[in-house]
Design a protein around this nucleic acid. Structure first.
Length: 456
RNA sequence: GUGGGUGUAGCUCAGUUGGUUAGAGUACUAGAUUGUGGUUCUAGGUGUCGCCGGUUCAACUCCGGUCAUCCACCCCA
């Protein structure tokens, strides 16, 4: 029986046209990364589960694709294990590898493993796919590419500033208008401290994040549901009600956080970054956004998120500072900061807003029509010379009807066609047809090459 | 994990209160045009109507289940 082929949920094939466009995104981003002095690395698609688990929060652990051990994967299990409902325990017995969930954790692992060969601060970029067992929907895929830049082994806030410059430059280059949102986890930590609920940072940040979406009342409800005391919620109100421009917000925040050392430090760090940005005349809009609360557990300082101005789509880029990601792997006191561009979402935005450049230059410049055996032989010789001149050239491989060959050239948007039949073979003057204007002329090889090199 | 929409030709979709032979556009192939594409005209369809079951004389149509897909929530790039 013939089965209809398909691909796993949330994955996609990419056509040549799509790949050309995807490569345009990757090339643009890579060029900017290199301009800022970052160097490339690659890491394996799969990592040991011990490397991945516990780094992304409870939700993250659930979304990691686990790989079944090869061979007799049940050999470590007892019947009781299989029947028990403790899936986590069972998972550790039958899987020891997983597909990487992001590029930051594998990078931290890489740094620890190669610490002796790395000169710090280490600036690296990495463009590779990651996998998440999420339910697919708009702008959300189970396999997607991240383009990461991170610098590890430097506490300087200049790194944060430079990352924002990279963001600004990438999106300017791609022609997407964005809003770069910036905050600092320490401020949120400080807030949690001040209201007397230091253990509830995550719940508080998630709730604050929803402020715009669901409103103050619902946020308060949710906080109560998460077990925050009435007093704590009361204390939080002035913070949730903070409005206005930076000059107004900051003094108020400073007032509220005066007793929190970490909170004050967060404000100071943030200010330092923002003051730099103000001097640097960014093309994209940027702002301090307290409601910005990135979910990943490991962020400790700056938090950055970028959204498109003209389209509703999740974040196109996100990141922040992580003070101790390498500590878990045995290399403490090394701070890193980095961001990640979501290439697939950027693709969707460029596509939707019609911002992809014309990509005509990527098909062959000229196609030779195939008239038969003798003609083929001559064509191959001529084509060799033309390719030597750096011109993409193809010969139609089959001795098909002229109409079919012309149609092929037309559909591939090949701008020139050369016809060599009996007559042309004799005279060594070849018929060159311009497919855009429809004009034809007789030329020799030299003229042919010179004409084709012109319309580059 | 929770909720909703949609599954009919390669693609985009029509298809009447259930009724006999399942439709359009587009794409594709051939011809008009034996060495000339994009326009035009003509001809060309073996579609498990997503799958399984139920109701009915009769189901693409109604009901139940299931799978796929899209959207929203959650979370994220």
């Amino acid at each position: 029986m013939i089965q209809k082929p398909s691909i796993p949920k949330g994955t996609r094939d990419f056509s040549p046209k799509q790949m050309i466009r995807r490569n345009y995104i990757f090339d643009s981003i890579r060029a900017v990364f290199q301009k800022y002095g970052y160097l490339p690395i690659d890491t394996p698609a799969m990592e040991n589960l011990t490397t991945l688990m516990g780094k992304y929060g409870e939700e993250g652990d659930r979304l990691i694709f686990k790989i079944l051990n090869s061979g007799d994967f049940l050999k470590k299990t007892e019947t009781a294990d299989l029947q028990s409902s403790d899936l986590n325990k069972l998972t550790t017995m039958i899987c020891e590898k997983g597909l990487r969930y992001d590029l930051t954790v594998p990078f931290a692992r890489y740094v620890v493993q190669n610490k002796n060969d790395i000169t710090f601060p280490f600036k690296r970029y990495q463009i590779q796919p990651v996998w998440r067992a999420d339910k697919p929907q708009k702008g959300r895929y189970r396999e997607f590419y991240q383009c990461d830049v991170d610098v590890i082994g430097s506490n300087s806030l200049i790194n944060e500033v430079e990352l924002v410059l990279i963001i600004d430059e990438v999106f300017e280059k791609l022609g997407i208008e964005t809003i770069i949102k910036i905050s600092n986890r320490k401020i949120l930590t400080g807030i949690a401290e001040i209201i007397g609920e230091p253990g509830k940072i995550i719940d508080i940040t998630v709730a604050i994040d929803k402020l715009e979406k669901i409103g103050l009342e619902k946020v308060n409800e949710e906080l109560a549901q998460k077990g925050l005391s009435e007093q704590a919620i009361e204390k939080l109100q002035p913070i949730l009600n903070l409005k206005g421009i930076l000059r107004v917000k900051f003094p108020k925040l400073q007032e509220i956080l005066a007793d929190s050392k970490i909170g004050m430090q967060g404000i100071e760090e943030l200010m330092s970054v923002l003051i730099h940005l103000k001097e640097l005349n960014l093309k994209n809009k940027w702002s301090f956004d307290l409601t910005l609360a990135r979910g990943l557990d490991y962020y400790t300082g700056a938090i950055i998120e970028v959204v498109a101005k003209d389209m509703v789509m999740g974040s196109l880029c996100g990141g922040g500072r992580y003070d101790d990601l390498t500590g878990i792997f045995g290399l403490p006191d090394i701070s890193g900061v980095g961001i990640s561009f979501g290439a697939d979402r950027i693709y969707d935005v460029l596509n939707e807003l019609n911002l992809f450049p014309e990509d005509s230059s990527l098909t062959s410049k000229v196609m030779f029509v195939n008239f038969g055996k003798e003609e083929e032989k001559l064509c191959l010789k001529l084509i060799k010379e033309i390719r030597k001149a750096g011109i993409s050239t193809e010969l139609y491989p089959d001795h098909a009807k002229m109409k079919k060959q012309m149609k092929y050239a037309d559909q591939k948007s090949i701008p020139n066609v050369v016809l060599i039949g009996e007559e042309e073979m004799k005279s060594e003057m070849y018929t060159l047809k311009n497919m855009i204007t429809g004009e034809q002329q007789k030329v020799n090889l030299e003229e042919l090459i010179s004409i084709l090199s012109k319309h580059n």
